[in-house]
């Protein structure tokens, strides 16, 4: 990272643990802005899309702020966006939580209920990081904090599509495998909460800040 503090814009659409996220990025030396203004979300070095709770309610609130448009503008310019928890889920095609809801379709896949005896999946779990993962560098054996009932259970990306670099997909398991994180050029999605995962989580966010 350069000497200048990176600027991070956290999207404020009314639902999310905004205070904790801001604290975690501030801890890592970022200049943090919690904002609902599109211009601010596009201008920052990094944009973070938080999310708590129901997919449909979150997506509807995001749509009111044209969040997918700002993400599109950033990604087409190769500028990093990080989606967390429901902010990660909305990057996929759709969700079956409380009916059927359309996502942003950045990646193929459906957000489905975890096939486990106990949901929510709540607590500290391990991950199987993708080879060449940037965000999990040095953190392969750490546990991270999960708090969700839904996830994407299959990765259907057509690896035949010619891309600069195929997406890196990391997995976790709770009553079956599910996608824990996707790193796809400037677009990163994480199902768990790095901001609540102690020093391992802070290091993961620092790894992401290193890509800005």
């Amino acid at each position: 990272m350069s000497a200048k503090k990176p600027t991070i814009a956290i999207a404020d659409y009314g639902i999310g643990n905004l205070g904790s996220l801001a604290n975690a990025f501030a801890y890592n030396g970022a200049d943090v802005l919690v904002t609902s203004r599109g211009a601010d979300l596009v201008a920052a070095d990094g944009m973070v899309l938080p999310g708590n709770g129901a997919f449909g309610a979150c997506k509807q609130a995001m749509d009111k702020l044209s969040i997918s448009r700002w993400i599109g503008q950033r990604v087409s310019g190769g500028r990093p966006v990080l989606g967390l928890c429901v902010g990660h889920q909305v990057l996929f095609d759709d969700s079956t939580e409380f009916g059927s809801h359309e996502g942003m379709g950045e990646w193929p896949g459906t957000v489905e209920k975890l096939k486990a005896a106990t949901v929510p999946h709540l607590g500290w779990n391990t991950i199987r990081p993708a080879q060449n993962s940037t965000i999990f560098a040095g953190l392969e054996n750490e546990r991270f904090y999960f708090a969700h009932s839904y996830a994407v259970l299959e990765w259907n990306f057509d690896q035949g599509i010619e891309v600069m670099e195929p997406p890196h997909v990391s997995w976790s398991n709770h009553g079956g495998d599910f996608i824990a994180a996707v790193e796809n050029g400037p677009l990163t999605g994480i199902q768990f909460h790095p901001e609540l995962s102690g020093y391992a989580g802070l290091q993961l966010l620092n790894n992401w800040l290193g890509t800005l």
Partner: peptide, 9 residues
């Protein structure tokens, strides 16, 4: 509360 932020909160 649960309908807005989800059960996990």
């Amino acid at each position: 509360i649960s309908n807005t932020w989800g059960a996990q909160v």
